[in-house]
């Protein structure tokens, strides 16, 4: 292993960026070129935005204590369990500004699940939400958008995207999205293997309605992808807990 500190470059070294920050920077660039704006929302969120507005019924098991962090002495307030609440928040904000669809937006940010941590599970992790709303958005656009995203992220490697049926209360139809890298230039470890990347679908009409839009007129696609998982796939990271470890043995590799 060659020394990093040769006499020639003994000066101040550039620090290292957290891999999640690098991914967000890259995702923003790719999606920005496709017309997607960057949006954010609060991490402490109302049950309305986190669940009800997204068509998750009051008695849905996902709202049980074991999955969601609830805030003490703050009724109907949770640590957001996904970046999807920003779907409705963003649409509302645009409408307030008098801006009608089409909308395209990505929402990278931190989310929370009340679960025990291990090599593949963390109580706090990162997601990126994508939303495109307009009069003529289709499931085919979702496929095309994700294919382009992965193609650019994996630098021109042949990328295939496939959908499998799934269920989420906030999309109908709902799909599970798998990705496969093909060809000589694909990283050997990933080559030819289908990898489960995210949940997605066509925005449920109730969500469009809850945001204040007419679901007869507007439709959209939405997706929510784990950024930690994407980083793990991209760089072959072996433990999700490294993300919050603040360990330079990890961070200085990026």
């Amino acid at each position: 292993m060659k020394s990093e500190l040769t006499p020639e470059n003994k000066g101040e070294m550039r620090g290292h960026m957290h891999p999640i920050s690098s991914l967000i920077r890259e995702a923003n660039k790719i999606f920005s070129d496709m017309g997607f704006a960057f949006a954010s929302g609060p991490l402490v969120e109302s049950e309305w935005y986190n669940f009800d507005s997204l068509n998750v019924p009051k008695d849905h098991p996902a709202r049980d204590m074991q999955d969601t962090f609830f805030m003490k002495d703050e009724p109907e307030t949770v640590l957001r369990t996904h970046t999807s609440p920003v779907q409705v928040r963003y649409m509302e904000e645009q409408l307030k500004k008098g801006i009608q669809p089409p909308y395209r937006v990505i929402v990278p940010g931190k989310v929370f699940r009340n679960e025990a941590t291990d090599m593949t599970h963390e109580a706090e992790f990162f997601q990126i939400e994508g939303l495109a709303v307009g009069e003529d958005i289709t499931l085919a656009h979702l496929k095309g958008t994700l294919e382009r995203f992965f193609k650019e992220l994996f630098k021109g490697v042949n990328v295939e995207v496939r959908f499998r049926p799934s269920f989420f209360p906030f999309t109908e139809p709902s799909v599970e999205v798998d990705m496969r890298l093909m060809g000589e230039t694909a990283p050997e470890k990933l080559r030819g293997k289908w990898i489960e990347m995210m949940g997605a679908g066509m925005v449920h009409p109730n969500v469009i309605k809850n945001a204040g839009l007419d679901p007869q007129k507007y439709r959209g696609f939405a997706f929510g992808m784990g950024l930690d998982r994407l980083a793990i796939v991209r760089w072959a990271i072996d433990d999700i807990r490294l993300m919050h470890s603040a360990d330079l043995r990890f961070i200085n590799q990026f």
Partner: peptide, 18 residues
């Protein structure tokens, strides 16, 4: 869903807000 061919979104009319 394999029968759905991917289609890219049409160009967005305006520059995304910063």
């Amino acid at each position: 869903y394999d029968k759905i061919a991917p289609v890219e979104l049409p160009a967005f009319a305006t520059q995304p807000e910063i």
